[in-house]
Design a protein around this nucleic acid. Structure first.
Length: 219
DNA sequence: GCGACAG
DNA sequence: ATCTTGTCGC
C-alpha cells in the first residue's frame, strides 16, 4: 500500500513535539470507516539491544480473523524511547512494513495509545494520519489519565479521563486478566474502537495476537 | 518542586 | 522493551 505523506524522523525531542502539535488538528475523531474486511495488527519489537527496530504487520480477515497477509521490516533505531514520543522511534519501521502490503487494510490496530496521550497524539493517531486509515490504539499499560477499575467481566470498561474529557476506555477483554487501554487514533469513535477491539479478542488477547503476528511475519 | 512515564 | 521474584489459582 501507499503511505499518504511523511516528514523528517531525525529530530530533537522539541522538534518531535512540534510535529505532534502541527498534526493533531488534522485528526478525525468520528467514525469514518467503510466496510471492514481487513484488519491490520501493527507491532514493533527490537533487536541488537535496541539499536534495530523490527516491525511486524499481520492482516486478518474480519470478522473471521483468518490470516490474509504479513509483512516485516527492519530499520536501525534513530530516536530514543521517550514517554510521549514513542511513535518517533517505532513508526519508520512500521511504515516500511505497511508499504509492503499488497492492499491497504481497512483498520489499523496499533500497539500503544491513540488520543490517550499528553498531547492527544499517540502512535495510533500518528500512523492513522500518515496512512489516512482508521486507527485504534491498544496499550497494555497506562500512559496518562485517570480511571476506575473495570468490573471483572468480559467486555466491561470504564472511561479513561484526561483534562475532563473521556479519551479512552479501560477494557476487560477477559475475566481475570489485566484490562487493555483502548483509545481512538484516527477516523473512529471511542465506542466503535471498543467494539472492534472486542471483536478482535474473541480467540486471543491482543498481546498474544501481536506476538503471534511477530512469529508469523518472521517466518 | 516532585513524581509519573505507551514501548 | 526485558528480567526477576513472590503469590495465587488450577
Amino acid at each position: 500500500m501507499k503511505i499518504q505523506f511523511t516528514h523528517p524522523w531525525i529530530l530533537s525531542p522539541a522538534e518531535a513535539i512540534a510535529v505532534q502539535q502541527a498534526l493533531r488538528p488534522r485528526l478525525t475523531l468520528t467514525d469514518q470507516l467503510g466496510t471492514v474486511q481487513r484488519v491490520a495488527g501493527v507491532d514493533v519489537g527490537f533487536e541488537a539491544a535496541g539499536t534495530v527496530t523490527r516491525a511486524a504487520i499481520a492482516v486478518l480477515g474480519f470478522p473471521e480473523l483468518d490470516l490474509l497477509e504479513t509483512a516485516i521490516a527492519r530499520r536501525s533505531t534513530t530516536f530514543p524511547y521517550i514517554p510521549g514520543l514513542l511513535s518517533f522511534r517505532e513508526l519508520p519501521a512500521a511504515l516500511e512494513a505497511l508499504e509492503r502490503l499488497r492492499a491497504p487494510p481497512d483498520l489499523l490496530v496499533c500497539d500503544g495509545q491513540g488520543i490517550a496521550h499528553p498531547r492527544q497524539f499517540g502512535i495510533a493517531c500518528h500512523l492513522g494520519l500518515l496512512t489516512d486509515l482508521p486507527a485504534i490504539g491498544v496499550a497494555k499499560t497506562r500512559l496518562c489519565g485517570t480511571h476506575e477499575e473495570p468490573p471483572d467481566q468480559r467486555g466491561a470498561w470504564t472511561p479513561l479521563w484526561l483534562k475532563g474529557e473521556p479519551v479512552g476506555a479501560v477494557l476487560r477483554t477477559r475475566p481475570g486478566v489485566k484490562p487493555l487501554y483502548v483509545s481512538p487514533g484516527h477516523r473512529i469513535s471511542l465506542t466503535s474502537a471498543i467494539a472492534y477491539v472486542m471483536a478482535c479478542c474473541t480467540r486471543y488477547r491482543l498481546p498474544e495476537t501481536t506476538r503471534h503476528a511477530h512469529r508469523l511475519a518472521s517466518g
